[in-house]
Every structure is written in structure tokens, then in C-alpha cells.
């Protein structure tokens, strides 16, 4: 009895941790299970008749609108990621590598969008697009908005990586006859790259999953999250579950692959 109690108290943190992980995965499991549901109108309640079925997995684009929405989300995500990663990386380099007037205000300007609730960002962008710039809402306004909120996250991520680099490595390169250009190309950039890649992945996932800001500025443009949200009232197709769960699988596989490559690169042979 007392041995059981001491085992429990020794492993308390781990027990709670496992319970929390189960909690985290519960909705994912639901999403997965309901992708096999032979539902009638909306994929909300389980229909024992004919379930489980593989028909939604066999035809993921079967529901009208779901695949076009996915394609739009990927296009927006790719564009926003590309631009935000470049702009944010440049800012991060300036902030870490240079002392200049206006550095602390730059830090504040980068921090503010992260401290602003999404509804406010969405509302203000909607207002400027309609009242100020008089732009038609759609694909491009969504891309512009996504770039805006991704930049700050890119700056933070790349900055953390640059700050953790030993400045002596660049000194060593220049000591070994590398001119500033070569030093950047051979040493600084390769060492900063993992941070830049992490920032790009982060940008993509933020853009891909964004709903609130997108909903404000998208007009008739439909992204994947917006598609799911809008169909909630009309009836969600199980194809949304198929796609949602596939994204999860792809992301997990990517992270695992990155981990394996990363640890092989570092080659920690103990």
C-alpha cells in the first residue's frame, strides 16, 4: 500500500503529463473517428448504420468546395510564408547585428502585433481596406494580412537563433581569410538557417490555421478554416475531417523527419 503511494508520488508529474497528453489528443481522435462516419446531413452525430466507412477517405474532394478551399489556404500560406520569412529575417539581422538609432522602437513595433487580439487586427485591416485603401476584399487582402501577423513571429524566432550564435565564429572566419561576403554565405547564413526554416514552418502553420483575421478580410475568398466554420451551420462534410487529420499526419511526419535529420546532422554520438 505505502509502496504504491510512493510510486504514485514519485511519478506524479509523469502521470499528470500523460493524462494531459490524452486530453490534448482527444479532439484529434474525434476528428479521426468521425472521418469514417456514414452521416446523413451533418457530420456531428455518429450514425451506426453503415459506419465505419472508408468512402470519405477514398474521395477526399467529394464534398463541394472542400478541396478548392484547401488549395486557397495552401496558396495563401505559401505566399505569406515566403514574404514574411524574408522581411522578418532581415529585421532580425538588423536587430541582432547592428546598433542603431530607433532599435528599441523597432522592438516595440515588432512586439505590438503579437500583443494585439486577432479581432482588433482583423477589424482594423477591414476598416483600412474598405475606408482607406479602397481595396476589394479577397485573396490578396488575406495574403497581406497574413504577412503582417507572421512577420513578428519570424523576427522573434530568427532573432533567438541569431542571438544564440557565438560571434567568435564570424571572427574566426574572417581570421581565416574569408571576406565579409564569404563569411556571411559560409558561416552566418548556414548557422542561421535552422532558425529561418523554423520561422517559415511557423508562418505557414499560423497562416494555414488562421480563421479570425481571415474572416474579417476575405470577402468571398474561402480558406479551409473558413470553409469548416461556414459549413458548421449547414452541415460539415466528413471530407473536412479527412483533410484535417491528414494535415496533422503530414505535420507530425515532417517534425519527426526534421528531428531525425537534425540529430544525425549534429551527430550526437554520446
Amino acid at each position: 500500500m505505502s509502496r504504491t503511494r510512493s510510486w504514485v508520488s514519485d511519478h506524479l508529474a509523469m502521470i499528470i503529463a500523460v493524462a494531459v497528453l490524452v486530453y490534448l489528443f482527444l479532439p484529434v481522435l474525434y476528428t479521426f473517428v468521425f472521418s469514417f462516419n456514414n452521416y446523413r446531413r451533418s457530420n456531428i452525430t455518429w450514425n451506426p448504420e453503415g459506419s465505419p466507412t472508408l468512402k470519405h477517405w477514398a474521395n477526399p474532394c467529394g464534398a463541394p468546395g472542400v478541396c478548392p478551399a484547401l488549395v486557397e489556404s495552401i496558396k495563401i500560406g505559401a505566399l505569406a510564408t515566403l514574404v514574411a520569412t524574408i522581411l522578418g529575417t532581415l529585421i532580425a539581422f538588423a536587430l541582432v547585428r547592428y546598433v542603431f538609432r530607433g532599435r528599441s522602437s523597432t522592438n516595440v513595433l515588432v512586439f505590438l502585433p503579437m500583443a494585439t487580439p486577432e479581432v482588433v487586427l482583423g477589424a482594423s485591416l477591414l476598416t483600412i481596406f474598405i475606408q482607406g485603401f479602397r481595396m476589394d476584399l479577397g485573396f490578396w487582402t488575406v495574403v497581406i494580412a497574413h504577412i503582417m501577423f507572421c512577420i513578428s513571429f519570424v523576427v522573434v524566432t530568427v532573432k533567438a537563433r541569431l542571438q544564440s550564435l557565438d560571434p567568435r565564429l564570424e571572427e574566426a572566419a574572417s581570421d581565416l581569410y574569408a571576406n565579409p561576403r564569404t563569411t556571411f554565405l559560409r558561416i552566418t547564413f548556414p548557422l542561421a538557417l535552422p532558425g529561418i526554416v523554423a520561422a517559415a514552418l511557423l508562418s505557414f502553420s499560423l497562416s494555414f490555421d488562421d480563421f479570425i483575421i481571415t474572416n474579417f478580410v476575405s470577402g468571398n475568398e474561402t480558406t479551409f478554416p473558413k470553409f469548416v466554420y461556414v459549413s458548421y451551420t449547414r452541415g460539415i462534410p466528413a471530407q473536412a475531417n479527412v483533410i484535417g487529420f491528414s494535415m496533422f499526419l503530414i505535420a507530425v511526419l515532417c517534425v519527426i523527419a526534421a528531428q531525425i535529420i537534425g540529430s544525425r546532422r549534429r551527430g550526437v554520438a554520446a
Binding site: 497528453l21 490534448l24 489528443f25 482527444l26 479532439p27 484529434v28 474525434y30 476528428t31 468521425f34 456531428i44 452525430t45 502553420s205 490555421d209 480563421f211 479551409f224 478554416p225 469548416v228 466554420y229 458548421y232 460539415i236 473536412a240 475531417n241 484535417g244 487529420f245 494535415m247 496533422f248 503530414i250 505535420a251 507530425v252 517534425v255 519527426i256 528531428q259
Partner: peptide
């Protein structure tokens, strides 16, 4: 990885799943 992984399923989908749970 396990902590981050669930969040690759769409935010809206997971919230709807909670509605079901």
C-alpha cells in the same frame, strides 16, 4: 512533438470536436 502535434489539426475542427465531446 506530442504537445505540438494536435495543433496541426485545424483549430475550428478541434473546437467542433469539443462540441461533440
Amino acid at each position: 512533438i506530442l504537445v505540438v502535434a494536435p495543433f496541426f489539426t485545424s483549430f475550428i475542427l478541434r473546437t467542433i470536436a469539443w462540441r461533440q465531446i
